[in-house]
């Protein structure tokens, strides 16, 4: 068979139009998509933030859809076509160098995001996300507003809860740090306040706890546990000063509860997805021994760090 340029050109045009019909136009025609239960339009501020999200290439590292097989941050709900009706262009993304953001709204408070965008290593010491500190204040506000809208009406519900608690926490914070510690104590359900740490504070456990602390907590709560990490100046209420607990009631269970669930309304994130239960107990032990200076759960009272690290006395006959 002898091919001619015209034949190839025409053949190609036929294939291209048939394909365009079947995979481009047909999906739009056969399945008109209605807004899903959680979809909503962006406010003008959020829409400006979305443009910043596009222009700064966040899509290169973040996806915005959740699969049935996913775990983690956004896996609260599997994405549906109707979630995206208002998106132009789509921001689905194809690579997860960072976590999926489809349900990011309301996962953190605004001050957490502020610190995180200034320098992601402030809130997440091992992060490889770039710093976006060149964004001016109004732009930062717009970007955060957009990120807080991700998840549509589900995000709105979470944000309402964050804002409500934020007001109450701020009020407690203004009454002084002891009143604040008291307020946090009373927020924790009673059974947790008396629950001892089931794991002994062995040297190995403390080493693991320290590893977790350095990977997750150190830049907020500080290397000394006094709440003066480098992120602190962006956050209100400020990160908790663990040494305060020397003069307040506390327990391993209380620490566990706070770490697992975070403190809604403050920058304190929840760690139930990043840390398995044993790791949370280990970091609780580390805080107790290293910063509060005693380990009430194992009945020991130490005077500071070295004493607490001593091996438990041999069992009495």
């Amino acid at each position: 068979m002898g091919m001619t340029p015209r034949m190839v050109g025409v053949g190609m045009a036929i294939i291209a139009s048939a394909t365009a019909w079947s995979v481009l136009f047909l999906p739009g025609l056969t399945a008109p998509i209605r807004p899903s239960a959680i979809a909503r339009r962006l406010t003008p501020l959020e829409a400006r933030g979305r443009i910043l999200y596009i222009r700064n290439g966040c899509i290169g590292c973040h996806t915005q859809y959740v699969r049935p097989s996913d775990w983690g941050l956004s896996a609260l709900r599997v994405s549906q076509p109707g979630d995206y009706v208002y998106d132009q262009p789509h921001l689905l993304g194809s690579e997860r160098t960072g976590p999926d953001l489809s349900q990011e709204g309301g996962q953190h408070t605004n001050d957490w995001h502020w610190a995180h965008f200034r320098d992601p290593r402030l809130t997440r010491p091992a992060s490889i996300m770039p710093r976006f500190r060149f964004l001016s204040r109004p732009r930062m506000r717009a970007l955060i507003a957009y990120v807080q809208s991700l998840g549509g009406k589900m995000a709105d519900a979470r944000m309402a809860r964050q804002n409500d608690w934020h007001r109450r926490l701020l009020a407690a914070w203004r009454r002084g740090e002891d009143a604040n510690a008291d307020f946090l104590y009373r927020r924790v359900p009673a059974p947790w306040r008396v629950l001892p740490n089931p794991y002994p504070a062995t040297q190995a456990a403390l080493a693991r706890g320290r590893f977790v602390y350095e990977q997750e907590c150190i830049n907020c709560h500080g290397p000394l546990g006094d709440g003066n990490g480098p992120a602190a100046r962006y956050l209100l209420p400020r990160p908790f000063n663990f040494t305060l607990l020397k003069r307040h009631p506390w327990s391993g269970g209380l620490l566990y509860y706070q770490i697992m669930n975070g403190i809604t309304g403050s920058a304190m994130p929840y760690f139930k997805q990043d840390l398995e239960s044993a790791k949370i107990w280990d970091v609780s032990n580390y805080i107790a021994v290293e910063f509060i200076g005693k380990n009430i759960d194992s009945g020991e009272t130490g005077s500071g760090i070295p004493a607490a690290r001593e091996p438990a006395p041999p069992p009495r006959p």
Binding site: L24, P27, I33, Y84, Y86, D87, Q88, P89, H90, L92
Partner: peptide
């Protein structure tokens, strides 16, 4: 020939400002 068509359609060139459609349809294109 094919690329002329694909480039024009795929970049949604009749929408100069966004170069995009809406939602999942946009992703498919």
């Amino acid at each position: 020939v094919a690329t002329l068509a694909v480039y024009f359609l795929g970049n949604v060139m009749w929408h100069p400002l966004t170069g995009a459609l809406h939602g999942m349809n946009d992703a498919e294109w």
